[in-house]
Computed example of a mutant assay.
Amino acid sequence: MEVYTTENEQVDALRRFLIENGKALVVGIVLGIGALVGWRYWQNHQSEGAMSSSLAYQQASEALAKGDAAGVSAAETFSAENKNSYGVLSSLQLARYHADKGEFAQAETQLRTALTQTKDVDLQALTALRLARVQVQQGKADDALKTLDTITQAGWAAMVADVRGDALVSKGDNAAARAAYDKGVAANPPQALQALLRMKLNNLPG
């Protein structure tokens, strides 16, 4: 089941960048539906430690891609031992793996871990947005709304409104959901997200 419809390309591209370059990065990501809006980052000096972390991350990522218990365990160990950008990406990959299998409780655990691994506000916003989506999938609409309240940057307004509307629909509050979707449209998001929001508005009962 696809829970993530907006960020996978961005995270995959960032993962490839880290693997190919092997540099310690602090990353902020600004996302748009269906396309890469952009990301910002600055790099620290390259060191043997950074190269070692990059190699270990690549190995953990490849192990997880196999989809077996050993691979999942290797990725979980790497995530737990690395409180940095590599650890965040590993946690996000694990969350995506579990969500795709319908294991939303495990996905939530990994996303909560990811939130502790970075202080970058955009990467935290990305993680919180994914967490809110997973919480909606679990029927935890109130938890999802609280999670969304932690995302305060203006650049995320439309995406937050989209997930907020979904959470409110799941609660049966169609009037509040309509207000949320309207707010998302008013934020003038990229065309794909705007079309999605308008479709959801049109599908709401009068």
Rank of each mutant, 00 (worst) to 15 (best):
L25W: 08
A50V: 02
T127N: 03
A56Y: 01
P205L: 02
S85N: 08
L204V: 13
A65W: 07
Y57W: 07
R164T: 01
L126E: 00
L196P: 14
L148C: 14
A125H: 15
P190N: 03
G71H: 03
D182K: 13
A186V: 06
V121C: 03
R178G: 13
D100V: 03
T109I: 08
K101F: 05
L129W: 12
L148D: 14
K183W: 09
G165C: 04
L148Y: 14
N174K: 15
E2F: 10
A177T: 03
L25R: 05
V160T: 09
L129G: 06
A63S: 12
L64A: 09
R112L: 09
A63K: 11
R133E: 14
N21V: 03
A180G: 14
N84S: 09
D166S: 01
S73C: 04
L129R: 06
G172M: 04
A128L: 12
H98T: 01
R164F: 02
Q106H: 11
Q117A: 06
A65I: 05
L168H: 00
G28S: 09
F78S: 10
R15Q: 08
S52D: 08
E48N: 10
T118A: 10
E7A: 14
A158F: 07
L129I: 07
I151N: 15
V3Q: 04
N8R: 11
G165T: 05
K101I: 02
R164Q: 03
E76L: 07
L129D: 14
K183R: 08
A187F: 01
Q58F: 07
D162V: 00
Y86R: 05
P190A: 01
L31K: 08
G32F: 07
A50R: 01
M51N: 15
Q124W: 02
D149K: 03
L131W: 04
S79L: 10
F104W: 13
V134R: 12
L25M: 05
K146E: 12
D143W: 05
Q194Y: 00
N21K: 10
A180W: 09
R96F: 11
T150G: 15
Q124L: 02
T113E: 15
Y57A: 10
G22R: 13
N8I: 03
L193G: 00
I151C: 15
T77M: 02
G22M: 11
L193V: 00
K119R: 12
D182I: 07
A125T: 12
A99Y: 15
T127C: 05
L201E: 15
V72C: 02
